[in-house]
Write a protein that binds this DNA or RNA. Structure first.
Lengths: 189, 189
DNA sequence: CGGTGCATGTAACCTGTTACATGATTGT
DNA sequence: ACAATCATGTAACAGGTTACATGCACCG
């Protein structure tokens, strides 16, 4: 199982409703996992049934009631077991790379456009994550924060997220340039 | 559908059997996709039924017969359609990042080990891909090859693969160091 | 005699995605 | 009026993983 641990990890820092979790999965947690709201609601239900998280109903006025979940001791134990087990290697799985692989055999125009869109998206994400980093470390500088900070986990994963997006952006721009230049110097098929 | 285009892309350069494809998916193609042999056999059967690839039986002595597949015109058309359509954004999905996110809340020893193992694995992959790059571009230097090379698609995806692995390796080593240093300066829980 | 490589699959299961469904409140 | 935000799900389907199955040739 997979999503369950990402949920437990995201839930470690406090109480969240399914709705709030879905948002967290679009920013901070997005560095290591991605999930749709429906999946999260389903997973939370399952986790609660197994006693790894517990929820409490919060009655609200002027907006729908919600259930806030937190990790139980059993959930924490499950996480520790997971962390100790060997992780399967990760890999990229990206449609855009498939397209680049064949870009010189088929039309390149659309691929170039998509590369540039991706680069902008990556850029936006880099800025977003940069802000998150600054927010997480507060006043301290990075070295200092990493040595003595209380909660560095999210910071560390965020660093990977930024590096990934930077690599992605640089590659997209480079490849777009290469393909563009070939269009002008080669006969287009 | 997803795997089908990765298979078509991998098959663009020549004839491969399911078995050979499975190996290709462990090296070059691994930069953008990953699949188990069973999946490939199943996908090839489906693709053949739809006329996107065609196979021919090769009778062998001293080893099992095999079927070599190649992309048909319909398959090429399918690929072009795919390349023109918008790609959904990609994301990381990595157990190890989940573990790092919670590393400061649970035991770190096992996580540090896993980070260092990953770093070695990444290092090995970097070397492998580096050789692949040199092989692909032959005598030319990179700039020259990218301007005038015949088949640059695999080279371009390989570049992304290397950058990804380097980023992964650097991050793993950095995080392992950070966590190690905290172990000596903080009281371990 | 046992392991590795070649070569191909089936079946059951787990996970993730898409489409659909509901309903109040707040902001433009 | 219309869109966005809060809040929660169900159902059908597509895709991926794990386990199991077969069989010959070659090397040590």
């Amino acid at each position: 199982m997979a999503l369950r641990h990402a949920v437990l990890a995201a839930l470690l820092d406090g109480e969240y409703s399914g709705y709030q979790l879905a948002k967290a999965f679009d920013v901070g947690v997005a560095n290591f996992w991605h999930a749709l709201p429906q999946q999260l609601y389903a997973e939370l239900t399952r986790l609660e049934k197994e006693g790894l998280v517990a929820g409490r109903q919060v009655i609200q006025e002027n907006r729908p009631n919600k259930r806030l979940f937190h990790v139980t001791d059993a959930g924490r134990a499950e996480l520790e077991e997971f962390a100790a087990a060997v992780a399967k290697p990760s890999f990229i799985r990206d449609d855009l790379l498939v397209k680049v692989q064949v870009a010189d055999r088929i039309g390149t125009a659309s691929v170039i456009e998509q590369l540039e869109e991706r680069a902008s998206a990556a850029e936006a994400k880099i800025e977003l994550l940069g802000k998150l980093l600054r927010q997480l470390r507060g006043d301290a500088d990075e070295e200092e924060f990493l040595r003595r900070g209380e909660r560095i986990g999210p910071y560390l994963t965020c660093l990977r997220g930024i590096a990934f997006e930077q690599g992605h952006r640089d590659w997209c721009l480079r490849i777009a340039t290469v393909l563009r230049e070939r269009r002008t110097t080669h006969a287009e098929r």
